[in-house]
Nucleic acid binder design. Structure first.
Length: 231
DNA sequence: GCATTAAACTAGC
DNA sequence: GCTAGTTTAATGC
């Protein structure tokens, strides 16, 4: 079958407290699958048949509004669980999972969720902590949307992506997956035109350097200032 | 301060 | 050459 190396899971939050042998058990129940960029791993409202662990790549959790517009609720980075509807007491997926880059993921049947949380020490507590963290993140984004101006929300959105996926390059920190102006507008509740204007302004000020689908933050501290205390 | 509309430009297939 | 992504300006709420 799919013989996946145990070291892939060792050290990841949900499995941190497990024995090598237990990790082997879990892996033997997993299915691994590769996804191209821009495809849906699962869709909002569909029966949540499996839950996933992202090994490589990036996932966008996308909600569709009644009007047919898209909202990017969050990004998932390698090592994180996603599609964990059971942890939220749901039997359908709350959002669509779109790959933001070429992606490799493990998955298990959702019926194993209760078994995992009961059987493996730390699995439940670690995952519920992750769920809690995500809810806090969504919560603060909500407050942001309601209270902050567009420029501040944009700064926060860039910082969030940098924190989750930033990798050092010679001139700053690069967001590790492709992002378009449209994507950022869907994260911040604005238009791609406004995103474009603000990013070009920041580029002139030397805060970011962006080419198409590609952003390097050269002055993270300046973004922090722009996002936080009114300036 | 921001969305909308429109129009033109460009990188990459 | 086509398409998706981007930029810029004009206009109006």
């Amino acid at each position: 079958m799919n013989r996946i190396d145990e070291s892939l899971l060792v050290g990841l939050p949900p499995f941190r407290r497990l024995e090598r042998k237990q990790i082997r058990e879990i892996l033997d129940l997993a299915v691994s699958k590769r996804f191209d960029e821009g495809v849906a791993v699962f869709s909002e409202g569909m029966p949540a048949e499996r839950f996933y662990l992202l090994l490589d790549g990036y996932i966008r959790a996308v909600k569709t509004t009644p009007g047919g517009e898209h909202i990017i609720a969050m990004h998932i980075a390698p090592g994180q669980l996603f599609g964990i509807a059971a942890a939220l007491g749901r039997d359908t997926y709350p959002a669509t999972a779109i790959t933001a880059a070429e992606t490799l993921a493990l998955s298990w049947p959702m019926r194993l969720w209760d078994e995992f949380t009961a059987k493996y020490d730390g699995f439940a507590s670690e995952t519920y902590k992750v769920v809690g963290d995500r809810m806090q993140d969504i919560q603060s984004q909500l407050t942001e949307l309601a209270t902050q101006a567009v420029e501040q929300r944009l700064a926060s959105a860039l910082l969030r992506m940098v924190n989750q996926s930033g990798r050092k390059v010679d001139n700053g920190i690069e967001i590790a997956f492709p992002v378009t102006r449209q994507n950022i507008s869907e994260m911040t509740g604005t238009t791609l035109h406004t995103v474009s204007r603000v990013l070009s302004a920041w580029q002139k000020q030397g805060i970011v350097e962006s080419t198409r689908r590609h952003i390097v933050v050269t002055e993270p501290h300046q973004l922090v200032l722009l996002s936080g205390v009114a300036g």
